[in-house]
Design a protein around this nucleic acid. Structure first.
Lengths: 211, 211
DNA sequence: GCTTTTTTGTTGCAATTGCAACAGACAAAA
DNA sequence: TTTTGTCTGTTGCAATTGCAACAAAAAAGC
């Protein structure tokens, strides 16, 4: 099981402050449900979630919603990662959030002259790599063709991450449906079958795989 | 429109050879349809497609297939992506391929002592960033809920990339169905409706958006 | 505490999608 | 050139999924 990389690996508070000074980083607080956006003119910016949780969401004109990604403490996001898509995306705070913004080119160029910045760049690469791995998992999920398979795949992934056949669902079923890009009622129906056919146990959001 | 970053930006042949020497890179030739795999023991490895095309594919025990990603010249992939999910993935050469393998940790650690390695690392970051953008597009595609929307989204993306309402499909419809993770006959049916309802023109694989 | 909002759980019905099967077109290989 | 294999295009039918609507439960806000 791969270790989840930390953007602040080997950084204490003092080093972090120094680094943020070198990179002219800005830290901003967002309230729950607030939209997170930040711009340094035309420059590419990276957001680091220091505290709290956020999500990348697409709203359809129909009111339909898709949860594209979730960001927890230590996760990074960037408008660079989404710039050329075909729909309007937004990043929203789920809980109160602290987000630090760093200029991308600044981070790279400073790495040549500052040991601290280079160390941070190394951490950044590990984190972005891990981000890519997560995206891949997401694509694997979404390319399964039935709700049943999406559910089972999602559950298996959670079980794997939790190193146990039992785990707690972090999503509401409403959100899970948007995450798996399926209709909620259809998801509930499939969940019911999975329980009836003894594939899983579901004791209010605590899932156990029975196979 | 973003410039597609090149992993060899500012590298001439001589520099490239020197770099590969520093990083102990290995270049391997694969025949069309061959499976691409390589291992440096337990270390994480990055593959760079030098020539040709390859794909990441999942085969279901049912014989069902999903195309997860396509790699062209200059694209990178990693065993980290392949091994993390819940299903067996493989990378396959579509055409004859030359692939260079680099040790991930080696690439990062050498950047501290070698200017050349640092320059390469910078290029790598730009490329992986771009990879992330592509993955995001893919996720956006897959989170649309009908075949019609998947098709239109895919077409719009191609049109955007081609800077024109008209473009040539690079996939066969069989492959496109596996790429969009839907049934081929259902895709053909939907395509037919789109033509009949004058949303698109399709003159053998040359698509024109009519809206 | 009480009120309001969100989530869960369910269902009938309609629409979409997948499956299976086949014929013809096209491309690759022998 | 003939053969072989893959891709396109199509259809009937069955299965799955989405939609709409509602009640009950739970959570959040006051």
């Amino acid at each position: 099981m791969p270790i989840i990389p930390n953007i602040y690996q080997n950084f204490d508070d003092k080093m972090r402050r120094k680094l943020y000074n070198i990179l002219s980083a800005k830290t901003i607080l967002y309230k729950a449900n607030q939209m997170i956006s930040y711009s340094m003119g035309k420059r590419n910016v990276i957001g680091i979630v220091e505290q709290g949780q956020a999500r990348m969401i697409r709203y359809e004109y129909t009111g339909e919603r898709a949860i594209l990604d979730e960001f927890n403490e230590g996760d990074i996001f960037s408008d660079m990662f989404v710039e050329s898509g075909f729909s309007e995306l937004s990043v929203e705070a789920i809980t109160n959030c602290t987000v630090t913004f760093i200029d991308y080119e600044e981070m790279i160029s400073k790495a040549e002259s500052s040991k601290l910045a280079l160390q941070f760049l190394n951490n950044f690469i590990h984190v972005i790599n891990h981000t890519l791995v997560k995206r891949n998992e997401r694509i694997e999920l979404l390319t399964t063709r039935t709700i049943r398979n999406k559910l089972l795949s999602y559950f298996e992934l959670q079980a794997k991450k939790n190193n146990s056949k039992t785990f707690n669902l972090k999503y509401s079923y409403t959100d899970l449906a948007d995450y798996l890009a399926v209709d909620r009622s259809a998801l509930m129906r499939e969940l019911k079958s999975l329980k009836e056919e003894k594939f899983i146990l579901d004791v209010n959001k605590k899932i156990t795989l029975l196979y």
